[in-house]
Write a protein that binds this DNA or RNA. Structure first.
Lengths: 221, 221
DNA sequence: TTTTGTGTGTGACCTGGGTTACAGACGAAG
DNA sequence: CTTCGTCTGTAACCCAGGTCACACACAAAA
């Protein structure tokens, strides 16, 4: 698949107004990064060189515990951009989380100097970046609330609803998104199945009663 | 106490480079806001009119549950500025949290139009704002980790260490910072006291063994 | 002094969810 | 087919922390 600048513009319309020099630099074939699944995009306390523009694939940003548990903080999908990186570009040093390629990635990296320039001169780009920040903060605050106050069954229900069917993922993977462990997810899913909310298969979950799941997910306590 | 522009500049050196017009507007006595304790600075889903510059006092940003529990997301102190607001200034609509004056507040509000202009034209101001965002995000990610993976005794120990002695606050208040309930905090504090880590009094806590508390707070599990 | 309110101590109890330690089930590879 | 690795089920157990229901204790107000 060819990755012309067209793809870039389709995902990041903001970049249409780039000055030609930046554009040329950005579209040089060497600036195209292909990364395999599992690549660590960034680690806790490690610097970064530019502003990543994700063309395809998805990055998960997670916290890990020494005991081997994991918790998904958020995802970066194509069209989004990892704001963590810009955070770092802008003086804040350590990441305090890891970013990992969930799928093979295709991305271009906007060098730091260009990023600075764009943010300064291009109001729509600036708006775009601010928006990324704002969104991230809102999502993180939501996450704090959920982790602090919502039961795991609620959070699991919500997670299932957020995925598009057919859901193909292991209980382990779901547990890691929730910051829990496999056994509990299995137990809860079994409960859901018993209530006729889902049908379970190896590495696949079918949602039988979205309405009831939604109700479960939405209970305020 | 007079609140000249000097105070403003002392807290926000960034503003020194303001164009005179903005400066004049900002220093008009009418732009000085005095708010009593308990004022709701912003609520979930409510718009905002400018970028607040806190001169004195502290704002707590919290999540509440229907069951009456509360959880502190973060604080804004003088010199900081509530990035939530800017978030909103920049297009993201709903707050998903409440901001409440913990003490009487003294603040000036930079009107939205000036804010836009400053962010565009003044690189140090822009850097300042980005830095606020970045810091906030890092803190929130840290908070997620703590809530998800750390036990309450750890988090309480950390909280106590972060306060400056003498600590004068009720168990209820501590519980609300942690997103827990009074009884549990009392129980844990009693435990700390039994180990000689703290001495308890009505609305006051004395730290007897900071080293041990620190150790407790730092355990990685 | 008595009253009243606000903070604290405390025990009994419950429950969500994490831990351990398995056993079976399925699919792919040999 | 057999083997092996990955995924799932599941039971026994434990513990942190939340809930309920109190009883005090202390201070300020009446």
């Amino acid at each position: 698949m060819e990755n012309s600048s067209d793809d870039l513009f389709a995902l990041y319309p903001v970049l249409r107004s780039l000055p030609p020099a930046v554009l040329e630099e950005l579209c040089r074939p060497t600036s195209l990064l292909k990364l395999p699944v599992g690549t660590e995009i960034f680690t806790e306390r490690q610097a970064c060189q530019g502003f990543p523009l994700l063309l395809s694939g998805s990055i998960k940003v997670v916290k890990n515990t020494p005991s081997g548990r994991e918790m998904l903080l958020y995802r970066v999908e194509s069209g989004g951009s990892c704001i963590m990186t810009s955070s770092c570009l802008l003086g804040h040093s350590d990441y305090s989380a890891r970013g990992i390629a969930e799928t093979p990635l295709l991305m271009r990296v906007l060098p730091a100097t260009f990023f600075e320039k764009l943010v300064a001169e291009n109001s729509s780009f600036r708006r775009f970046v601010f928006h990324l920040f704002a969104e991230r903060i809102a999502e993180l605050m939501q996450l704090v609330e959920e982790v602090a106050f919502h039961r795991l069954d609620q959070r699991l229900a919500k997670l299932l609803l957020a995925k598009n069917e057919p859901i193909r993922s292991t209980h382990q993977a779901l547990a890691e998104e929730l910051g829990s462990v496999r056994e509990i997810v299995s137990r809860l899913l079994k409960g859901f199945a018993a209530q006729g909310l889902v049908a379970l298969g190896r590495e696949q979950i079918e949602l039988l009663d979205r309405k009831a799941l939604k109700q479960l997910a939405d209970v305020r306590r």
